[in-house]
Design a protein around this nucleic acid. Structure first.
Lengths: 235, 235
DNA sequence: CAGTGGTCTAGACCACGTT
DNA sequence: ACGTGGTCTAGACCACTGG
């Protein structure tokens, strides 16, 4: 029974109207809003439709829901942005440049206290350290410094990273359950300054990513981008 | 008819199994997977349940769906991360520090070519420029440089930004339809070095955000964080 | 134009968490 | 204990688009 009642029906229309009521403070921040069933009736839609609208508004940070507790307007709507983290190759080819990859170093790494902590190491586990450069049209684009936990991923020791970068190799090989990503601005180190052809101390955009599989840290990577790099998203 | 058939039913269980098939290349990258109806039957769930599982996997970047075209495994699963962009006050109070706000400057700004371009200005429109400092326990936390389009938002000229920061004022006042956010590393300018108490040229993490409402640029802001700031997310 | 995904409905049972 | 959201089902119509 599709109603052509007042306006266009459908969960998207419902969402918009709910959003309007939140923005115009028809429902004050923190206030309890009517229940699904009641709202569904008043909108003339099925409960499932109202549920989807409210669920998505919850995911988007506008509402808070609790069983039995009901639904509330989030006091200050939390803004969230989605950033796509492309594989370097795709990002470079996406801007129409030729991609090239170079393996700079590969060794069993001495384990610093920081890494030991990150990987939750206790004994004499071994880490594989890889240093790679990704180039766009011959210009250095991104420096990759990666540590791989050989205990969690012994097959990495046999892998040849001269052709395929560890990033792509890992994506194709290993599943993960948890990821932590951090962005920061850091001063060019001796290594990154040399590889990315800037002066030491220049500000460079950096991404740090650690990946776990069921509690075990698999890999940690520091990606340092060329000078002037911007990470952009729009919504 | 809830089946206790093989494993736990439910859209989450279905999702996991689909994900397993993707990861283990039971369905190769780029390959066409069976249709909803067929899969729903083979899993012993309703089509609606299968639809939700597949829809969420699509949102998460694992599948591509087209009407009539069917569903395919995304060739390289695109990784996306969600970052919450909290209001500064909430972020500072969230780490247990006392929040303080200071308005440093407020004037009708000379319009640079860059800003003119950003706001899509043609004639002699006026921009309100605001310079604010956000402090955590008395230490400079974030420098806010903001431009507001007075043509799109004339009421901003009357607003008093000495108590309430423009960020919070805007959130409470203006709806928006489009947002662009960019992250970059930049060298401390004379202004930011002075306010954030670092040397000129130090690397600082910066967020740029532009907000539109139905095609008109409302406001543009540059947020420069204190030295050593990291933006982190986990999933 | 025919097939696939997109969405809606009405009804039902269940789980969690407040009371 | 009981009310609210979370989810499932079976069936239906529709919209887009590939062949």
């Amino acid at each position: 029974m599709r109603r052509a009642n007042a306006k266009a029906s459908g969960y998207a229309a419902v969402k918009n109207e709910l959003l309007r009521r939140i923005r115009n403070k028809v429902w004050a921040p923190g206030a309890l809003v009517p229940g699904e069933i009641e709202l569904a009736e008043s909108f003339g839609v099925a409960r499932g439709t109202m549920n989807r609208a409210m669920r998505e508004l919850t995911e988007q940070g506008y509402l808070e829901r609790k069983r039995k507790g009901g639904t509330r307007v989030r006091p200050s709507p939390l803004r969230a942005a989605r950033f796509e983290i492309p594989i370097v190759r795709a990002e470079i080819e996406g801007i129409g440049a030729a991609y090239a990859y170079k393996l700079l170093a590969r060794r069993i790494a001495p384990v610093s206290a920081e890494l030991r902590n990150l990987f939750g190491l206790k004994g004499k586990e071994r880490l594989l350290y890889l240093e790679c450069l990704h180039l766009a049209d011959g210009m250095p684009f991104q420096l990759e410094e990666r540590w791989i936990n050989l205990k969690a991923l012994p097959q990495a020791e046999a892998a040849n990273f001269t052709e395929l970068g560890p990033n792509e190799w890992l994506v194709q090989t290993v599943p993960y359950t948890d990821v932590e990503i951090a962005f920061e601005a850091c001063a060019a180190s001796t290594l990154s300054a040399e590889q990315l052809r800037v002066k030491r101390g220049e500000p460079l955009f950096t991404t740090l990513r650690t990946t776990w599989f069921k509690g075990d840290a698999i890999t940690h990577v520091r990606l340092t981008f060329h000078k002037g790099y911007r990470m952009v998203t729009r919504y």
